[in-house]
Design a protein around this nucleic acid. Structure first.
Lengths: 199, 199
DNA sequence: CTTTCGACTACAATACAAAATTAGTCGAAA
DNA sequence: TTTCGACTAATTTTGTATTGTAGTCGAAAG
C-alpha cells in the first residue's frame, strides 16, 4: 500500500482539526483566522494557501464532521446481520448524535441565524444521505424476507417519514428532554415500527 | 341561558383579538402597547387595567390560540367513531397546524430568541396536552378491541413518541418542505403506525 | 365604585460616528 | 512550492446622544 497521504494533504487535515476544535469551542464568529493560524503554528496568510476563505474552511469542517458520522453509521450497520438489527443500530447512533449536537448547541446559538441558509443546505444534504441509508436497510429487509413486501415508492415514503420523525440535523431547539436515550426504549420504538399498534 | 359574557369580559376579548392580529402581523417587538390601544380605541393606560403588562397580554394571546386549536382537534376527534379515524383526524389537524405555523414564522423570527424560555414553556405545555389526547385515543382503541392489548406505560410511551415525531409546536426551522400534506399520504402513515413494516 | 386617560419616569432600543478587529490580498523571500 | 509580514477594505465593536416604549400614578369622567 503506497502512502495515501501526501505532505500537503496532511497539513490540510491539521488545519481542519484545529478549526474544528476552535469553532466548536468558541463558535464561528468568535474564531478568527489568526486563532486558527496560531493553533497550527503558521501565519494567517498561509491558511489562504490551503483554503480560499473562512467560509470555505467552516464548510469543510462541517462536511468532514458529517462524513465521519456517516462512516460510523455505515460501520455500525455492517456489524449487524439482520435488517432489524441494522435499523436499531442506525436509530441508536442517530440518537447519540442528537445528544452530542444538543451539547454543542450552546455555542453555535448566535451563529445560527447568520448562516441560516448555509446550515439549511448542509442539513438537507445530510437528510438525503440518511433517507438513502434507511431505504437501503428496508430494501434489504424486504428482499431477505425479514420485512413484508413493499413497492419501491412505499419504501421511499417510509424512509422519508422516519427521518422526518427522528429529525435531520437537530437544531438546538428541541425542548423534549431527550425522551429516548436508552437501548430498551429504542427496542420498543423499533417494535412499533415493525409491528405497529394495530391488531 | 343567562348572558355568559359580562361587559368587561367582552372588552377583555376585544383587546385579545386586536393584540392577536397585531402580534401575528408585526411580531411581538414591533407591536407597541399604543398600537393595541389605538386598535381598540382606548388609551394605552386602559390596557393595564385589563392586563398587567405586555408579556401577560402576549401569553394570553398564545394561550387563547392554543385553546382554539385544542378545541378544533377535540371536535374533529368526536366526529370520528373508530379509533383509527380519530388518530387520522388528529394527525391531519396537527399537520395543518404545522403548515399554518410555517407561514407565521417569517414574522416571529426575531422575537424567538428573545422570548426563548417563554416559548419553550408554552410549547411544552401544548405537547403535554397532545400526548394526553393521543393516549386517550389509543386507550379507547385498545378497550374497544380495535388495537392490540397494550399495558398503560406502553401506551404512554407510544404517545410521547408520536408527538416527538410529529413535533410539538414547530419552530420555524423545518427545512423539510412539508413532506406530508395530503390525506392519502396520511393514510399511509397511519398504516405504518397500525401495522408497521414487519412481516 | 368602575373605568378611562394624560402626564410622567425609567429603561430599553436605536442611530451614528469614532476606534479597533479582522478577512482577505500581494509581493517578496525562504 | 510554501510561508509570511505588511497592507487595505470591510466589518465589528464601542461609546454616546437620542428617541421610543413599557409601565405608574393621580385625577377625572361615567
Amino acid at each position: 500500500m503506497p502512502e495515501l497521504i501526501p505532505k500537503d494533504e496532511l497539513l490540510l487535515r491539521e488545519i481542519l482539526e484545529a478549526a474544528r476544535e476552535l469553532f466548536s469551542k468558541h463558535g464561528l464568529k468568535k474564531t478568527t483566522m489568526d486563532d486558527v493560524a496560531r493553533a497550527v503554528g503558521k501565519g494567517k496568510s498561509s491558511l489562504y494557501y490551503y483554503y480560499t476563505g473562512k467560509t470555505e474552511l467552516f464548510e469543510a469542517v462541517v462536511q468532514d464532521e458529517l462524513k465521519k458520522i456517516v462512516k460510523n453509521i455505515r460501520i455500525a450497520i455492517n456489524e449487524e446481520s439482520s435488517s432489524t438489527g441494522k435499523l436499531k443500530a442506525f436509530l441508536l447512533l442517530r440518537l447519540q448524535l442528537k445528544e452530542r449536537m444538543h451539547n454543542l448547541s450552546q455555542v453555535i446559538h448566535d451563529d445560527i441565524f447568520d448562516n441560516f441558509k448555509e446550515i439549511c443546505r448542509i442539513r438537507a444534504e445530510f437528510e438525503t444521505i440518511q433517507i438513502e441509508i434507511i431505504r437501503e436497510i428496508v430494501s434489504g429487509g424486504v428482499q431477505s424476507g425479514e420485512f413484508r413486501e413493499m413497492p419501491a415508492d412505499e419504501i421511499g415514503f417510509f424512509s422519508s417519514w422516519t427521518i422526518a420523525a427522528f429529525g435531520g440535523l437537530e437544531l438546538p431547539l428541541s425542548t423534549t428532554p431527550l425522551l429516548i436515550a436508552d437501548k430498551s426504549s429504542l427496542d420498543k420504538i423499533v417494535d412499533f415500527i415493525l409491528f405497529g399498534i394495530g391488531k
